[in-house]
């Protein structure tokens, strides 16, 4: 009809429908639920589906793979003691690092750390963020003011610096690291949840629940939480890669996991030292890390497109 870019026909998930008119009625006459609908849209998003499959496969290999690798991640092959190319006879399928440790075993172990950090630290952030956000949004008044002031103050803190200080404090403890990262990642989550809760609070079905005598806790649990879940899932999917990146960043600086344990970031740091001789030791862990981050981001974007009511 016209040649301006705005009028180009679009397809797929990013479809926009003219305001209020025409099509809003057409969408849910058959009474599909929000989740079924979202899942159907997600399935149609090929990038997101491939990402999900790649992530599952990668995680599976990282956690189950070491059982099938002849060497363990900390074992030094005393016959080698230097970086060597892949050799199937000695069982070093991806070669060894500069100390003669099996690179494949180390990459798999590093992957375990990355996935664990991603999921555990995000869970910590999720629990704190949802609890604070839902409480602040739902209770309102003083509670809301106090909690949000606190979040504001936390935002004014240079978080990267605090994580590093926390890493120094918790330096030798693998699990406290998750806690430390989770502790600083919950802020945005709490703001998002609070915003969603505030808009939900005045909706009719909450009024109805309150009128029929639901307690505050049960309203939060049974009505607010399920309804902010969509946004939260999207945000969680996008937080996991951030956390994984943060951990690799710390490990790169020598502040993350302690040797002989390793993570993708630590492997990249080691590889960077050797890259002139064996670029493999830099590139292989870098490819694993980037692929994982790529997939989480695509999955997160796909989920957002699938769950975002604005795009329907």
């Amino acid at each position: 009809m016209s040649d301006a870019p705005m009028n180009e026909r679009r397809s797929g998930a990013n479809l926009s429908v003219p305001n209020a008119d025409a099509l809003d009625k057409a969408a849910d006459v058959e009474g599909r639920s929000l989740w079924q609908d979202a899942f159907r849209r997600l399935q149609a998003n090929r990038a997101a589906m491939i990402s999900a499959i790649v992530l599952i496969v990668l995680a599976f290999i990282c956690f189950v793979g070491p059982a099938f690798v002849p060497w363990s991640y900390e074992e030094i092959d005393w016959d080698i003691l230097e970086a060597t190319p892949p050799n199937f006879e000695t069982g070093h399928y991806l070669g060894t690092d500069s100390l003669g440790r099996d690179l494949l075993a180390r990459i798999l172990q590093g992957g375990q750390v990355s996935f664990l950090v991603g999921i555990l630290a995000t869970s910590v952030a999720l629990v704190i963020g949802v609890a604070v956000g839902a409480t602040a949004g739902f209770m309102g008044g003083r509670v809301d003011q106090f909690l949000m002031r606190f979040v504001d103050v936390m935002y004014a803190v240079p978080l990267m610096f605090f994580i590093i200080i926390l890493m120094v404090v918790f330096g030798r403890n693998f699990y406290l690291m998750f806690l430390a990262i989770g502790f600083v990642e919950w802020l945005t989550m709490s703001r998002i949840v609070r915003g969603q809760t505030l808009t939900l609070k005045n909706k009719e079905f909450i009024e109805a629940a309150r009128a029929s005598g639901g307690s505050t806790a049960s309203i939060i649990l049974r009505h607010i939480v399920p309804n902010v879940l969509g946004v939260v899932i999207v945000y969680v999917t996008l937080t996991i890669p951030q956390v994984i990146l943060l951990e690799s960043f710390l490990s790169f600086l020598g502040l993350g996991v302690q040797p002989p344990m390793t993570s993708w970031g630590a492997l990249i740091a080691e590889g960077a030292q050797e890259m002139e001789i064996t670029p493999r030791t830099l590139i292989l862990p870098a490819v694993c890390l980037s692929t994982t981050l790529f997939c989480f981001n695509f999955l997160g974007d796909g989920l957002r497109d699938a769950l975002d009511p604005k795009d329907r």
């Binding site: 990146l245 790169f252 970031g265 990249i268 960077a272 870098a286 890390l289 980037s290 981050l293 981001n297």
Partner: peptide, 8 residues
């Protein structure tokens, strides 16, 4: 640009 960290 986002997923290839700058330490790579």
């Amino acid at each position: 640009g986002i997923v290839v960290p700058n330490f790579v």
